[in-house]
Amino acid sequence: MSGKFRHDIVHRWEGNPVIALDDLTFTTNNIYSAAAVKKNGEYILLVTMEDLEGKTSIHLAKSEDGYHFDVEETSFMTSSTDDSFRAFETMGVREARITFMEERYYIVYLGVGHHGFVLCLAVTDDFRTVKRLGVISEPETKAGALFASKINGKYARLERPKAGDRIWMSYSNDLLTWGESDVVISPRSGFWDSDLIGCAFTPIEIEEGWLLGYYGIKNTSSGPITRLGAAILDRENPCKVIARSNIPIISPRKDYERIGDMTNVVMSSGAILEEDILKIYYAAADNCLCLGTTKLADIVKTCIESTKEF
């Protein structure tokens, strides 16, 4: 073991970034975060890209090893022309989160329209065709993620309504109408996540409950710093926080995380758990997509030890 102190619980892949603008076969302005899933041994990402006009769309990227990806030039999802969705997606779609549930891949994504951000739901079986199911929130709501299994007989999701900048959750019987909303966790004044938080990758069911990866923002005089943190939520009642890390699991430090259209951002909307290793795909400085890995046990330990400390 090297004597060098590890500042972040998440270990950056030495080959970062995983997807940079120069890797693409087409012109785009920015790369945002990506949903991630492993299907039949293949790694699949749904990456948000912003084109030169400023509109966002979602592109599919595939890999055999989880490190080297081919990005498809034709977008997987772009602004809908369908009457039911058009008005909600005039300025694009972005920030997909995949949940594998009931043998189908559900995608919660953001519609960006002139009213602001709304959560939308789509489903795919093969990542070739995708079917939009519905607009599932009013504005202004972001960072939506479906839990992978029903909770107390109902579908459940996380979300971040703009008012309060907290993480909430809601329940549904049909995936289209939602209610019973309750607050899950809030920003903590004085901490690294003092000003705004939102769900990062889709919650992962682990032995202790649900692992929530979230992003947290602290505002500084030169703008926000976006970091990733973690908490463990009760399996039956996710509004009950069992443990929450006092420290981020990764903070912007590398040049590719510090320099870009949005400086000092690490932001994830996709992670894959393989045995005891968590692969976290994260966007850096709204400019490229990166990979960080960590042992699940290390994150859990950080969450639980934080609880003891306070």
Partner: peptide, 23 residues
């Protein structure tokens, strides 16, 4: 409240008065 704190009037529907959608 939508983007930039603009407030518009929206319509939503429900089967049970508790879960709402189709905004």
């Amino acid at each position: 409240l939508g983007s930039s704190d603009v407030g518009s009037i929206w319509v939503s529907y429900s089967e049970d008065l508790i879960h709402w959608g189709y905004h």
